[in-house]
Write a protein that binds this DNA or RNA. Structure first.
Length: 335
DNA sequence: ATGCATGAGCT
DNA sequence: GCTCATGCATA
């Protein structure tokens, strides 16, 4: 099984993405090797009490947002998912969470967070994540799989109950439990077939599904472990389901007639991954617990305090927010 | 398995 | 500049 291969997907449709044309990866100065000593150093750490409180708050926040996601996990995908001929209709963009960015820990707070002093959690930001269900739009994605589908649990069937003609898309496919169960089944059957996550990813292209190219090992892994957003899970499910069916069919054929089937067979400078040291990471986490969406100005300040590039900090917050939305972390699946 | 990043599309 | 889907690199 090909362990590794540039899962380059439809370059034509994906200009500039893959193909090793990375923007000059900023050279992480000397903080490259992090994760070492945890305390002691400069940023020695925010005092535990503070962190604990910040974390507690974060937890509250998380469950809060999960809860609402539970109520309306949809609203997310635009509507109908037509499987247009060539391209996949994908789900993109979701609801804009709370958009208050202004308030939040002031500089004072910042200082305290980074300087390890006490924190006045009094003026907590609140983030009421109202997912005001702004509808959503789904656009056509450049490459990649996923069909969109309509997943408004409460009100699907509004005006688009005509989709679902010929693809495995039942209403309960939106059910977190069903997704979880499928992911589990998928993994077990995949292993039984003796196929790696990376193989699945690259094999996907041979399915020739409209708009479905290949996926990386990361994505397959995340699907199996439910560390993708709910929407992403729903979009990927039919594709992986199709792959599984095909793979098992071929395995069967091979078994009874020795037919090898054809599924499985079928740069430049590397970018350096920035690594944020533990102390800095703790500060970011503490700050995030208080204000998940710092303004650009705030980000600059934080970056300076922690001696990190502003963009690194910005991306860190973006990733952190995204992480909160992953299925695995949402109450939806936590029975 | 997961951290940091890119890029599309949108606001 | 954000969200989201994804991926490379790496622990």
């Amino acid at each position: 099984m090909n362990m590794k291969q540039p899962v380059g997907m439809h370059p034509s449709l994906n200009p500039g993405h893959m193909s090793g044309r990375y923007s000059p990866p900023y050279r992480p100065p000397d903080r490259m090797r992090c994760m070492t000593s945890s305390t002691g150093n400069f940023f020695g750490g925010i005092d535990d009490g503070l962190l604990a409180r910040a974390e507690a708050l974060a937890v509250v926040d998380i469950s809060k947002s999960s809860a609402q996601q539970m109520i309306k996990p949809e609203g997310i995908y635009g509507h109908t998912a037509d499987i247009v001929g060539h391209n996949q209709v994908v789900s993109r963009q979701q609801m804009p969470m709370h958009s208050h960015a202004a308030f939040g820990p002031s500089d004072t707070m910042l200082d305290q967070l980074t300087a390890n002093t006490g924190m006045p959690l009094s003026g907590m930001p609140d983030h009421h994540n109202n997912v005001v269900s702004s509808h959503t739009h789904n656009h056509h994605q450049m490459y990649q799989p996923v069909y969109t589908h309509q997943n408004t649990m409460n009100n699907h069937h509004n005006f688009n109950s005509h989709h679902n003609v010929h693809h495995p898309m039942h209403d309960n496919d939106c059910d977190p439990r069903e997704l979880e169960a499928f992911a589990e089944r998928f993994k077990q059957r995949r292993i039984k077939l003796g196929v790696t996550q990376a193989d699945v990813g690259s094999d996907l292209a041979s399915l020739k599904l409209p708009g479905v190219g290949c996926l990386s090992q990361s994505t397959i892994c995340r699907f199996e472990s439910l560390t993708l957003s709910h929407n992403n899970m729903i979009a990927l499910k039919p594709v992986l389901h199709a792959w599984l069916e095909e793979a098992e069919k071929q395995a069967r054929e091979r078994k009874q007639e020795g037919d090898p089937g054809n599924m499985a067979v079928n740069g430049e400078k590397k970018r350096k991954r920035t690594s944020i040291a533990a102390p800095e990471k703790r500060s970011l986490e503490a700050y995030f617990a208080v204000q998940p969406r710092p303004s650009g100005e705030k980000i600059s300040q934080i970056a300076e305090k922690l001696d990190l590039k502003k963009n690194v900090v910005r991306v860190w917050f973006c990733n952190q927010r995204q992480k909160q939305k992953r299925m695995k972390f949402s109450a939806v699946t936590a029975h």
